[in-house]
Design a protein around this nucleic acid. Structure first.
Lengths: 121, 121
DNA sequence: CTGATACTGAACCATACGGTTCAGTATTGC
DNA sequence: GCAATACTGAACCGTATGGTTCAGTATCAG
């Protein structure tokens, strides 16, 4: 759907939308690990963890390399900067709107005060 | 799953993982809109757009209010700050690791240079 | 009252997700 | 060579997602 570019955001945010995967990222930030390590740490089958790692790899958040029979997983180059930037840019638009809104609210409040009564909710 | 807290991150990141929904957020940042407005702008049925708006509302990213027969949608208070903070905190751990890695790489490169040849890949 | 507008809910559909089991294959260690 | 280890792939399962249609309900305009 939507020709709109941003496939990269889709996969990156989707990858972050799972607690296990965020946990894996935090774990990898503390050091590389194998699929077995991660599966053990998150009490999951190897196959299950493999899928999570694949999702993270597909999003470019981790890179893996097979060394002998073990797959070494480590953090990828942080493309998450783009996501943070998106949120940040967005937050600015947002703030601008709320600054405007704040003035309106302040005005309403002062009116209420002048009328000497408050309306809950 | 995972008892692990972070339900809020799950819904927020999941909400952001869809291009249409990110588009809706950007649209709302430029001004409030009704379901009909949004459905028109993103060429989608009312029902389809309603679902997207519900997801965004569930994530606390937008708030809606029914005024007469039209539902007015606007941005919610920006709880996205927490998401940005998560990414930021994470990015710091990440950088720390890459700073260490950078030194190793720099050393390897200087060795390569001393050997007088480069290995493409 | 009547018709148009704006949403809402239920049902359905195809596909994706998070997880499992089971049956391999490739490597390592003795 | 043989067993154990470490992963991998296919198949399956229940649930969620992104979307639709269809049949309402509520509100507004005249």
């Amino acid at each position: 759907m939507v020709q709109y570019q941003g496939m990269h955001f889709n996969t990156a945010f989707a990858a972050l939308a799972d607690a296990t995967r965020r946990g894996v990222l935090e774990q990898l930030a503390r050091g590389d690990a194998s699929i077995t390590d991660l599966a053990g740490r998150f009490e999951m089958t190897l196959t299950g963890m493999k899928k999570h790692v694949s999702v993270l790899e597909g999003a470019g958040l981790v890179v893996t390399e097979k060394v002998g029979r073990v797959r070494r997983c480590r953090l990828g180059v942080c493309r998450l900067e783009e996501e943070a930037a998106w949120i940040e840019r967005f937050h600015q638009l947002w703030s601008a709107r709320f600054d405007a809104l704040d003035r309106v609210i302040a005005e309403l409040k002062s009116k209420e005060r002048r009328h000497g009564r408050r309306k809950g909710k």
